[in-house]
Amino acid sequence: MSIHTESVLIVGAGQSGLAAAHAALEAGLRPVLLEAADRAAGSWPHYYDSLALFSPARYSSLPGLPFEGDPHRYPHRDEVVAYLKQYAAGLVRRGTEIRTGTRVIEATADGGHGFVVRLADGQEVTVPRLISATGSFGRPYRPALPGQESFTGQILHAADYRAPEALAGQRVIVVGAGNSAVQIAYELAEHATVTLVSRAPIRFLPQRPLGQDVHFWFRVTGFDRLPLRRADRPPTGPVLDPGRYREALRSGRLERRPMFARLDGEKAEWADGRREGVDVVLLATGYRPNLDYLAPLGALSGDGRPRQAGGLSTTHRGLGYLGLEWQRTPASNSLRGVGADARYLLRKLAPVGNQAAST
């Protein structure tokens, strides 16, 4: 394999990597995508069974391929997987190379001329432009819980969760205040005894204010395209509520409490001293960028986050990122927002050098 000077190597063939490839084609570049999984669908096949998009189909497409069918529906996880596979096939027809089953081990600098990308099969690829689009699903955030070393139950993450039947009849504490925490707790409550815990009260945003989906208003007001300073970014966004989640908490169908004080053996201890038996603690505590392969390059901060501004590396020319939460706008890590970020990145991403690169 040889990589031309007009090439861009994209690590990850999920929604961000596919959007990057489309933008690269539009910019006259030759995109090559490397995907560790056996298909170009990113993390979507691994999400829980009931997950659907928060935004209607009409606002949820990647550039150049609208979702088919009712534009007002909220596509299910499996619909999104099929859509991404269709999108990838279209890119291949336009000349994009997508290599599935190809895992990147590390990236290093190539003497000022580009990047050396080492693969699990022993190959090395030298390339003048490198885009990291590996998302965060592979690095779930599991905060330390007081007393967890003595806990005799299970501690799971939302990344491990598929369907409520697996936890039927158990006593479950769901930790988190975001969309996934509330959705999982809500559906689990039909099958298990559930308490939703969070350090701060849950903030709700109606899904359809004034008869229109909230994403209609995001588009009209320009909120989705609004650049925000890092200081403006909330730790947890509001939960989009079609009307049932807030009502479930109000009616007692779903219980929410402040965070427990500690775990102890088979029990959770609350701030008021009450102790209750718990079978499972399920962490819906989010994810962190999955970028370990860039550590040898020196492109990451001490906590593994990329050193970047608007998706452009601040440590290495020719290195870019896509799909980071709050990368440029509130929509940056979503289907509806990653296309705009990809166009911006490909306009700005200059190659490291002018020499041809090869394996």
Rank of each mutant, 00 (worst) to 15 (best):
R99L: 07
R39G: 09
S132W: 00
L53A: 15
G138R: 12
A20M: 11
L84Y: 01
W44D: 02
V117N: 01
D38W: 08
H72G: 13
L84S: 02
A23R: 00
A21K: 13
G111Y: 09
G64D: 15
L62S: 05
L53Q: 14
V104K: 05
R58W: 03
S136Y: 08
E79I: 05
G95M: 08
F54G: 15
P31D: 12
S50A: 12
T102F: 08
A21N: 08
R118E: 13
P45N: 02
L62R: 04
T126D: 06
R99T: 03
A37W: 01
A40S: 02
R58Y: 10
F115Q: 09
S136G: 08
G135S: 04
V81K: 03
H72L: 15
E35H: 04
K85Q: 13
R58I: 06
A20L: 09
I105H: 04
G114Y: 01
Y48S: 05
T102W: 12
G14I: 00
P31G: 01
Y87A: 12
D38F: 07
R103E: 12
D70Y: 04
A21D: 05
D121G: 11
F67N: 12
I131P: 06
Y48H: 13
L33N: 07
D121R: 10
P63C: 03
A21G: 11
T102Y: 07
A40G: 06
H46K: 08
A24H: 07
P71C: 14
I98S: 08
Y47C: 06
P45L: 01
A88E: 06
G114P: 00
A21L: 06
S132V: 02
L34P: 01
F67D: 06
D121V: 10
V80R: 01
A24G: 12
P128I: 09
G64R: 07
F54K: 15
S16A: 12
A89D: 09
S60R: 11
G17C: 11
V81W: 14
L18R: 13
R94H: 03
